[in-house]
C-alpha cells in the first residue's frame, strides 16, 4: 500500500453549512453520488455527516429530516488527513479510530474525502476489487 492520499481521495467534496437541513444533505448525497457531506463555516471544516449518521441520529430517533439541521447531528473533532499523507497513514487512522471516512484538508480548506472503499481499492490495484467502480451503489 504505497502512494499518497491525494492519489486515492475523492476530490471536490460536497460542503454545506451547519444550518442546512438533513433533507437537503440527503438530496445532495443522492445527486452527487456520495455518502458524506462536509459541514463548513467560512470555508473551514466544522464537522462531517454520513449516510450512517442520518440512519442512526435522524431516522432511528424519529427526528424530522426537514427541520433537523446538520449542526444538530454532525460529528466534530474529526481525525483529518492531508493530501501529502501516505495512504498507509490513512489506513492506520481508519482502523484505529474505527471510522469509514476521513476528510482531507489542505491549508485549512476541505479538498477531499477518503473512504474505506478507496483504501480497499488501493490495496492491490491489480486485484478484482479495483474493478468495482468506486461510485457503485453501496449495496
Amino acid at each position: 500500500m504505497t502512494g499518497k492520499v491525494r492519489d486515492i481521495m475523492s476530490a471536490a467534496p460536497v460542503c454545506m453549512a451547519a444550518t442546512e437541513s438533513v433533507s437537503a444533505a440527503a438530496k445532495a448525497m443522492k445527486e452527487r453520488g456520495v455518502g458524506t457531506v462536509l459541514v463548513v463555516s467560512g470555508g473551514r471544516l466544522e464537522g462531517m455527516v454520513t449516510e450512517r449518521d442520518i440512519t442512526i441520529r435522524v431516522l432511528a430517533e424519529n427526528r424530522d429530516p426537514a427541520t433537523t439541521r446538520l449542526g444538530d447531528i454532525y460529528t466534530s473533532e474529526l481525525a483529518v488527513l492531508r493530501p501529502e499523507d501516505d495512504v498507509q497513514h490513512a489506513a492506520r487512522l481508519v482502523r484505529d479510530r474505527a471510522v469509514r471516512r476521513l476528510p482531507v484538508i489542505a491549508d485549512g480548506v476541505p479538498v477531499g474525502v477518503v473512504s474505506i472503499g478507496d483504501l480497499a481499492l488501493d490495496r492491490d490495484e491489480r486485484s478484482a476489487l479495483s474493478e468495482i467502480p468506486a461510485t457503485a451503489p453501496d449495496r
Partner: peptide, 19 residues
Amino acid sequence: GLVTDRDLVVRAVAESKGP
C-alpha cells in the same frame, strides 16, 4: 431484498418519505 444506510438516505429522506 436488501436495504442499506444509503437506500434509507437516497430513497426515503431525499424523496421526503416519512419514517
